[in-house]
């Protein structure tokens, strides 16, 4: 039921200016489309998990002894990348196991890299000293490396084969036997093209 009385204004008016309706239509469509794009992409980005195949994301690690190690430069070796933190309980469980595995493989074309996530130098050094860890470790400057590997917590370990591809990924604390098996698998792959 339309309201009465109709005023003079309305009877003399025209239909809404086509130009402004078109403009609003385009604008509204643009806004909706860009929101859909951003949030669709954002959701997809959020749902991405750790990389388990393909080229391992490249990074340069500043170690706590002042060295600079580039992942790219380690081509030809198997690399064990372990994300840890001094405040992380399960990391402490696997620390000794990792060091033992390192001692076993250090002369066999394998290198271990430890990356400390949101840790302070003081606490990281204390942790390394406590477990007598001898392989290179560095702080994750600006949490860039952990973002590249999309870790969701610590500890997380990635095995990179000789060609620089991610061979395996484990989210739980490792035992030495398990780690050895993973390294052997990666070493075996090395001979294939």
């Amino acid at each position: 039921m339309t309201e009465l009385p109709m005023t003079h204004d309305v009877l003399t008016e025209r239909a809404p200016a086509k130009r402004s309706v078109n403009f609003i239509t385009v604008l509204a469509a643009l806004i909706l489309a860009s929101m859909a794009l951003i949030f669709g992409l954002g959701l997809r980005h959020q749902q991405q998990t750790q990389p388990t195949e393909g080229m391992a994301p490249l990074f340069t690690l500043q170690t706590l002894d002042g060295q600079e190690i580039a992942l790219e430069a380690l081509r030809g070796q198997v690399v064990v990348i372990n994300f840890w933190a001094s405040w992380c309980g399960p990391c402490r469980d696997e620390a000794a196991e990792l060091e033992a595995a390192w001692q076993q493989y250090k002369d066999k074309d394998v290198i271990f890299l430890g990356i400390a996530y949101t840790d302070t130098e003081r606490n990281a050094q204390a942790y390394l000293k406590e477990f007598g860890i001898t392989y290179p470790n560095g702080l994750d400057y600006k949490t860039k490396i952990s973002a590249q590997y999309r870790i969701t917590g610590v500890p997380e370990t990635f095995i990179v084969d000789r060609q620089g591809h991610i061979s395996e990924f484990v989210m739980t604390p490792l035992k030495r036997v398990q780690l050895s098996a993973m390294i052997e698998r990666a070493l075996a792959k090395g001979t294939q093209p």
Binding site: A85, S86, W87, T118, D119, T120, R122, N123, T143
Partner: peptide
């Protein structure tokens, strides 16, 4: 602290945050 989701460092109870506060 990135470890706690969206709370400030002074109200977070995790060990990571305790270390940061010490820092």
């Amino acid at each position: 602290c990135p470890v706690c989701e969206n709370i400030t460092l002074d109200t977070c109870g995790t060990l990571a945050c305790a270390q940061w506060r010490e820092e």
